[in-house]
């Protein structure tokens, strides 16, 4: 029983990280209708920026996190403007997809060039005491608590932002109908930039949380969590913010349970198998909308 609860909290914690990454995928897909496969690598870049800011530049953890978020935000805006925007009107949506894969390799190889291939051990950035429960039978690490809280806060703020602010409503409008949104006076390019900015800033936070929980950083660190978060976004219904949260947490729990109770070797395969089953049963994902039009 105690081990079940302990696996569950590990699953929720890992899932919270997937959820934060999945947000970047799902928002960009919802608004720009593209899959940004470089999103996972932004996580890695964010983690490297935070790590170097502390170990090389000697910044305080708070400043280092700020630097990571700000630089990743700028990087997201730049990637969109330089690599994706010129292709937005391309005849085939594959053009931008392939470019995104190219950007992903570019980021990995740049990191390889700058930081080398060997794994760096991530420093303790977030130092929060652990919570001891049931007379010491279960300990919840500080980072686990912070991760879950961060996920809940980010989801709540983002949901509020999209629903209640002007830029948020512009995002909804662009997601629903780009041309109609323009006719309302919404600047579509600026709205897509904002979406990339938010997604990439959150990726830096996800990188921090990921490397704090699993403190080993290489240029490929973002790749697998990125793909799994993509699975989580599709699982929850791509384009949906609550879908990203539920999909991410479910995927994290499935992964940890799979690792613990079935086999640690095939845990990843189980994640992807679950995706396939969900898509067979409900092709739009758990929270995905069935597209219906009324004439």
């Amino acid at each position: 029983m105690m081990s079940f609860l302990s696996y569950l909290k590990d699953g929720i914690s890992l899932g919270s990280i997937y959820a934060i990454i999945a947000l970047g995928y799902t928002m960009v897909y919802g608004i720009a209708k593209m899959l940004n496969f470089a999103h996972g690598d932004v996580i890695m870049v964010g983690a490297f920026i935070i790590l170097s800011s502390i170990t090389k530049a000697g910044l305080s953890p708070a400043l280092a996190i700020l630097a990571g978020v700000v630089l990743c935000t700028l990087m997201g805006i730049t990637i969109e403007a330089v690599a994706y925007r010129p292709l937005r009107k391309a005849a085939s949506p594959l053009a931008v997809l392939i470019t995104a894969i190219g950007v992903s390799y570019l980021l990995q190889n740049l990191a390889l060039l700058i930081f080398g291939a060997d794994a760096k051990s991530f420093v303790t950035v977030i130092d929060v005491p652990a919570l001891v429960l049931f007379d010491g039978k279960m300990t919840i690490k500080g980072i686990t608590i912070i991760t879950i809280i961060a996920c809940i806060v980010i989801m709540s703020v983002l949901t509020w932002f999209v629903k209640n602010t002007k830029p948020g409503r512009a995002m909804q409008a662009v997601a629903a109908d780009k041309d109609a949104a323009q006719l309302m006076g919404v600047n579509v390019n600026a709205t897509i930039s904002l979406t990339f900015a938010i997604g990439s800033g959150l990726a830096a936070i996800a990188g921090l949380l990921l490397c704090s929980a699993y403190p080993s950083l290489t240029p490929y660190t973002g790749s697998m969590p990125g793909i799994k978060a993509f699975v989580a976004a599709v699982f929850g219904g791509i384009g949906s913010i609550p879908g990203a949260m539920v999909g991410g947490i479910l995927l994290g729990v499935i992964e940890i349970f799979g690792r613990a109770y079935i086999s640690s070797q095939i845990a990843d395969a189980i994640c992807f198998a679950v995706l396939i089953i969900v898509l067979l049963v409900k092709p739009t994902g758990l929270f995905g909308k069935n597209i219906q039009e009324k004439v």
């Binding site: 909804q172 629903a176 109908d177 041309d179 909308k289 039009e293």
Partner: peptide, 14 residues
Amino acid sequence: RVFADMSVYENLLM
């Protein structure tokens, strides 16, 4: 081309 998932009020605000 109304925004189908927004309410009538939210559409008007847009």
